[in-house]
Amino acid sequence: MHDTTTAARGAEHGADRPHEPLSYRFLLLVWLGLMCLTATTVAVSRIELGALNIVAALGLAGAKASLVIFFFMHLKYENWIIKGMVFMAFVVLAIAIGLTFVDVGYRY
């Protein structure tokens, strides 16, 4: 039930920033980066660092997620409002994990 007015209104607001297609070489490098970070995650999990194990695991997971979102999902080329919304989702996730650790960190 779109009329041209409504559709045009959406298109006008939703225009993506134009950008060159990413090269296979670049995407391959991002993929290799993800593989390295995964290997690092496994390696770090085998070293006893106490509470820092969690910090390292979450930090590495955050780095991997950022690579996927920025390059594979093209967030880098979106406008500020989309970036802001994704950032907000991560902030909420960080708060949820942080508040959970107020329980887990002090329970025993």
Binding site: A96, V102, D103, Y106
Partner: peptide, 22 residues
Amino acid sequence: GSLVWAHHMFTSGMSDNAVLLF
């Protein structure tokens, strides 16, 4: 409202610090 969930867990054995905060 997204930051108050653990008030359902006050008697669950969660840490006292979390009880106070939530």
